Amino acid sequence: MKKINILLVGISVLLLTSCKQEAVKPKVTYDATKGKVKSRLDTTQIEVADLPIQMEGTNYLIHPVGDLSISEGRTKSSYGSTSADRVSFTISNTSEFEITGYLRNLKFQQIGSDSIKVLTDKPVLIQTATYLKTIADKTKQQIMVYTMADRDTNKDGKLDTSDIKTLYISEISGKKLMKLSPELQDLIDWNLVESKNRLYFRTIEDANKNGQFDKNDILYYHFVDLSNLGWVVMDYKPV
Rank of each mutant, 00 (worst) to 15 (best):
G101W: 01
Q127Y: 12
I6T: 07
D42L: 11
D214K: 03
L229R: 14
N216A: 08
K3N: 13
D186G: 08
D50M: 12
D152C: 08
V37I: 09
L180T: 05
K209H: 10
L51G: 10
S78T: 14
T100F: 10
G230R: 14
Y236P: 10
F223C: 06
S195K: 01
L7V: 01
E56N: 13
K155Y: 10
I4E: 05
G10H: 10
G101H: 02
T139M: 06
M234T: 15
S39R: 02
T82D: 14
I53E: 00
G211L: 00
A49S: 15
S227Q: 12
K158N: 12
A23N: 04
G73A: 03
M148P: 06
F223Y: 08
T130R: 11
S92K: 01
L132K: 02
E47M: 13
N191M: 14
M148Q: 09
V118R: 12
T43V: 08
L192H: 01
M178P: 00
D214Q: 03
S92A: 05
Y131F: 11
T161A: 15
D67W: 12
V233K: 07
I126Q: 07
F108A: 07
E22T: 12
I135E: 03
R198H: 06
F223S: 10
K117C: 11
V48M: 05
K2Y: 06
Q185R: 14
H63P: 01
L15W: 12
V124G: 00
S69V: 14
D163S: 04
I218Q: 10
M178R: 00
L68T: 01
S77N: 06
I135T: 03
D50K: 13
F108V: 04
L199K: 03
G230Q: 15
N93M: 12
L68C: 01
I218V: 11
S181P: 10
K25C: 13
I143P: 06
E96T: 15
K76M: 10
V87H: 03
L61A: 09
K34H: 08
L68G: 02
L184W: 04
L14S: 04
I126F: 06
I188F: 05
L41D: 07
L159H: 02
S227P: 11
D189Y: 14
Y220P: 02
T161G: 15
K176W: 02
K196I: 05
K209G: 08
K34W: 03
I126H: 05
S181Q: 11
K117N: 14
L16S: 04
D150K: 11
R198D: 04
E56H: 12
M55H: 02
V9E: 14
L187E: 07
L15E: 09
S78D: 13
F223A: 07
V13R: 04
G10V: 10
I46F: 09
M55Y: 05
G112S: 03
F108G: 04
K196T: 09
A207F: 06
D225M: 04
K215P: 15
D150P: 07
G112Q: 02
R151I: 10
K140R: 09
D206Y: 03
P26R: 06
W190D: 12
D160T: 07
K133I: 06
